[in-house]
Every structure is written in C-alpha cells, then in structure tokens.
Design a protein around this nucleic acid. Structure first.
Length: 353
DNA sequence: TATGCGTGGGA
DNA sequence: TTCCCAAGCAT
C-alpha cells in the first residue's frame, strides 16, 4: 500500500496561495494589483520595528495625515516629528526617520529601490532594507524578521542558537520565495508568523506548511526557535522633578542621547542608574522646596524596571536652569512627552492619567 | 558582538 | 503577577 502523498504542492506555492486568501487589509499595504507606495511602506516598516500592528495602525494614520508625502516630512522640524512620535518608544527611530526623509529628498535619485542603497540610510537595517526592496519595489530580497525566523526555525526544526542562526534562516527563507512575486512572498512569510505560526499557540491545522513542518512532526513546535537565556530585569529607583512657575509654566529638558534622547522630559536622576532615595536631592535642577508625592510612578522598560518618586516644587524665578526651558503648561499635551513622563505629569495632577 | 533603547497587550 | 515579545537598529 502506497501512502497518499500529502505534499501535492510545493511549500512556496502553498504559502502564496494561503496568503492570497488570508492576507489582512492593512493601511500601508497595497491591495492586490495596486502599486505600493514606497513612502508608506518605509514609514510603516520603521513604525513596526518592535511594535505591534495594533499600535501602529492608530499612529500611522495620524502621521500620514500630517505628512502625506516624504517631502512634507523632510520639511518638518525634527521636534515636530519627535512630538508626533511620542508614546511610540524607541525614539531613535523618529530621529532617524526624519534624517532619512531629508537624505532621500536631498538626493537626486529619490527613494532608492536597491537593497544596498536602502541599507545606507539612517534607521534602515538589514531587515528593513530587504523588506522595502521586496515589498515596495518587488525585488527578490529576503527579509528576515522575528516572524520569519520563527516560521523557518519550526519548519526545519533548527536548533542553532539564536546568535548564529541568521544565515541558515535566510537560506531556508529564500527557498520559499517565489521569483515572480518577491513582495508577496516576504509578506506571506511574515503574515503566516503573525496569524498562524504564533509564538505561543500555533494554529497548525490552519497552516499551509503543516505537512512540511519538522517541528510539528516532532510535536515540538514550542521548542523552536531556540531561545536566548534571559537575564533578570534590574529594578531601579530614581526621581523625577517637576518645577512649576506659577500656574502656567513647567520646566522641561531634552536628554541629548540615550534614554528619551531628543524628547521632552522632566529633569530627573539618571534613570538608567539605580539611585537611592538619600541621593535624590543632589539631582534636583535647582534649589527649591521639593515635595515628594505619595505614590511613586512605575514603568517597565525593555532592560529595567523603574520606580520613580515624583517631586514637585514652585518657583518665581524667570531664568531656566541650564539645559532646561520653560514650557507652557497648556501645551504639555502637544509637547509630546514619553509615556513615563506623562505618568509623572499625571501623578502631579497636570495631565489626565 | 553584546548591549541599550519604549511601550502595550496577551497568556 | 509575571513573562513574553512585536515587521530591529546603532554602536
């Protein structure tokens, strides 16, 4: 008795057939048969770096509405772009986005379609360069993101540790690409990872590649991809200082780099360091009658958890301490504060929580 | 190459 | 509560 052959189709073709039916309508995604807009693809790819589709959907619409074309974005002051980005995190993305817009608009050739040229632009790394080249320009480039790595690692039961797995994943992903439809192939792999081959509970019965999947044969889907060992997240303490001048002005500063680089922030202890309560006063922006609010604000970053005591003081001084500026309280919402700083402002009763 | 860099949601 | 992690990049 000959076993019936389940693999009637090649995996790459099965993947595309699945994508043609199951693909989501996304604001930045061209509909079938429509030409993609490189500006929109690029903007979405930058926003989507380490950020969920649900979050990006909301922010993308507002961003695109404000700057409909890359020339508009290039013309805008970088501070406006950062303010619009506030709350999205990883603020270097916004600085690089703006720098990239200016570089593209200043160049005679417009938006590059070549992976290598894209890779040279600020904020565009290996994944994003390949994704833009494939999706916006239909070039045969293999974009490997977290989704693709997971799909491929399971498909081939790859045991290679995460640090060294990239070349193999890339090779296996390339084998799934359709030469006729590179953009759709790339998106299909990512879509499969997002909708079916999910990190925790893959829906294998719904997967077009299930009959090819080594991890499924081993009944060990959750063992792939091999995960890096995690280090415990340090807990740090710090203080945030909110100085009020009368009822109309607040003291803000912009950290030049690092955490919240370029963003508006209240003066604080160096938040990436653990600072004991006894040391707080040494970091206040000026001498004043600082009053500590009862409940600290807590915030969890990628690499540490913070508990910050919020201090408030009033002053009548006109001059702002060095590195700082006065901002109208009424504009606080528009200034574009990072989420932690919004929490602090809310705790002080200056913003709605 | 290992680390720093935000935030929000789901299990 | 805690953990995981989401279309990564720069240095």
């Amino acid at each position: 008795m000959i076993k019936p052959r389940a693999r009637s189709t090649k995996p790459g073709a099965a993947l595309l057939a699945w994508y043609d039916v199951q693909r989501r309508e996304l604001p930045w995604r061209a509909r079938a048969g429509e030409a993609p807009d490189p500006y929109r693809i690029w903007l979405s790819e930058i926003m989507l770096q380490q950020t969920t589709v649900a979050t990006v959907k909301e922010r993308y619409a507002a961003f695109l509405s404000r700057w409909p074309a890359i020339e508009d974005l290039a013309r805008a002051p970088v501070d406006d772009v950062l303010a619009q980005w506030a709350g999205l995190g990883y603020y270097a993305r916004a600085r690089n986005l703006h720098a990239c817009a200016r570089a593209v608009v200043d160049s005679a050739d417009g938006f590059p379609s070549d992976e290598a040229a894209l890779r040279r632009l600020p904020g565009i790394g290996p994944y994003t360069a390949a994704a833009i080249a494939a999706i916006a320009f239909d070039q045969p480039c293999v974009a490997v993101d977290g989704n693709v790595e997971r799909v491929i690692a399971r498909l081939h039961a790859i045991e290679t540790p995460p640090r060294k797995v990239a070349p193999l994943v890339r090779e296996k992903a390339a084998a799934l690409m359709s030469p006729a439809r590179p953009g759709d192939s790339v998106q299909a792999l990512m879509e499969l990872g997002a909708l079916v081959c999910a990190p925790r509970t893959p829906d294998c019965p719904a997967c077009p590649l299930s009959s090819f999947c080594a991890a499924r044969r081993l009944r060990a889907q959750s063992d792939y991809p091999a995960r890096a060992l995690k280090r415990p997240k340090p807990r740090r303490r710090g203080a945030i200082f909110i100085l009020r001048r009368g009822d109309e002005a607040l003291l803000l500063r912009r950290p030049p780099r690092g955490l919240f680089g370029g963003m508006n922030a209240f003066p604080s202890t160096p938040l990436t360091q653990d600072v004991a309560a006894a040391e707080f006063s040494g970091f206040a922006p000026c001498a004043a009658r600082w009053r500590a609010l009862e409940e600290p604000v807590t915030h969890v970053f990628t690499h540490f958890a913070l508990e910050a005591t919020v201090f408030v003081a009033h002053t009548r001084a006109k001059a702002a301490p060095s590195d700082c500026r006065w901002a109208a309280r009424a504009n606080l919402g528009k200034e574009g504060l990072p989420t932690l700083m919004r929490k602090a402002a809310a705790r002080a009763g200056l913003l709605d929580a």
